[in-house]
Structures are given as structure tokens and as C-alpha cells.
Amino acid sequence: MAGADNRCRLVLVIPDIAEPSIALKAVEDALRGGDVASVIVPQYGMSDRDFQDYAEKLVPVIQDAGVAALIAGDSRVAGRARADGLHIEADAEALADAIEKHAPKMIVGSGNMPDRHHALEIGECNPDYAFFGKLDGDIRPEAHPKNVALGEWWASMVEIPCIVMGGTSIDSVVTVAETGAEFVALRTAIFGDLAAAARAVAEANALLDEKAPRFDD
């Protein structure tokens, strides 16, 4: 998509969909809607074996669309599924260990940053990105104000890219983009109506094209 590289881009978080075939179709449809930087695949309540099977089916679908597939939590699953990266929700010590083991072969990004103190500890590990919010934290139409504030603070002073969790409304991408964050994560806003996932991605990109500030070259 023209212009997407110099403004805030979308990261999709797959919701808790019990039936893998339904999840596959929803993701495939969403990725037809326009520019997406990456897709994060959480485990939710799946067993390790089911999550492995699930990831092995999803990762190629994501990658075939030219999008990075990030597995949340389990490095073994990420490796076996040949994912592009790993999303870590852990302390700085565990993150540093994951980076040592898996970077730069894999993208290694981190959540678990509820405040500036934790964020700075995580930042010292130099992950590929910092994620503000919870993967299932989109419980209101707007992005959580605390995450927005943390994203704005981070983007103003740290070179490591950040992702801010948006809300259940597609309009929330504008508030996140205005912080200077490189990425906005959406879950329910895209997958709340599975049949409309492609249209939701297109609408989010249209808003970002129109209203997101442009980054300096």
C-alpha cells in the first residue's frame, strides 16, 4: 500500500477462535484487506500440541500474504512452525535469554510493560519491538489511555519501535498513530465480525492513510 512505510501500520492479533479452519479463513480474508505488518498468534487455552498444529496451519497463510507471523510465548512452537518471530510476555531476564537464543534469526518482541520502569528494563534488552497493552486488552472502543500515554512517551525518546494495543473500534487507530507509535495492534476491531475482516483492514488503512502523521525519512 502506497505510503504505508512512512506512517503507523497495522499489527493484527488473532482472537480466541476454537475452530482452526474458521481462524484460517478469517486471517486469510483479513490479509486481503490491505497493508498489515505482522500477525500475532496467541495460545489462549489450547494445549501445547493443539497450539503447535494451529500454528503450523496459520503461519504459512500469514507468510504467503507477505506478512510476518509472530508466535506468542512458545519458542518451540515458533521454531517448528517456521514463524518469523516470537512475542514474549516475561521479565527482562527471560527476554534477554530469548533474544540471545533466537535473534537475529527470529524477531523477538516484548510485552509486559505496564509502566515506565518496566519499559526501560525491557528496553535495555534491546528487543525488536515493545508492545504496550495486553493482547486481549481491547475491551473498550478506544485504546486504553495508559497504553496511549506510554506509547507516546516511548516513541518520543526510544528508537526501538513500539506497538500500542488499539480498542474495539477501528477509529482507535488514529489516536494511537498520533502518539508517534510505529504500529497499532487490533483484534476485535478486525475480527469481531469475521465476515467483514477484509473490509475492517481496508477501513483501518484508509484512516491511517488519511490521518496518521508521517515519519521523517
Rank of each mutant, 00 (worst) to 15 (best):
P20G: 00
A189M: 10
F183M: 14
D115S: 01
A4M: 12
N205E: 10
A26G: 08
A92D: 10
V184S: 08
D16H: 08
Y129D: 07
E178F: 04
E121P: 00
R187D: 07
G137P: 11
S172E: 07
L12W: 05
G167W: 04
V59Q: 03
A197K: 01
L194R: 12
V176H: 01
A197R: 13
Y129V: 01
A2G: 15
A2Q: 15
P141V: 00
L31T: 02
V148Y: 06
G137R: 11
A68M: 07
M113F: 03
A196Y: 12
P104F: 06
E121K: 15
N126D: 15
Q63S: 02
I190V: 15
I122L: 09
S110W: 00
E100I: 07
V173A: 07
G45S: 09
S156E: 13
C162T: 11
A18G: 03
M113D: 02
L24R: 13
R76E: 12
D91N: 15
E159K: 14
D138Q: 00
N205Y: 04
L86Y: 01
L12V: 07
V108C: 05
L120R: 11
A4Y: 14
R199A: 14
M46A: 10
A69G: 09
V61H: 03
E19D: 12
A130G: 05
K57M: 12
L24W: 05
P213G: 00
G166M: 11
D53E: 13
V164W: 11
E28T: 09
S75P: 07
K134Q: 02
R82W: 02
Y129T: 11
C125N: 04
A200V: 04
P127A: 01
V27N: 06
S38Q: 11
I71G: 00
L95M: 04
C125Q: 14
A37P: 02
K105I: 07
A206N: 04
G180M: 09
F191S: 00
A2D: 15
I71E: 05
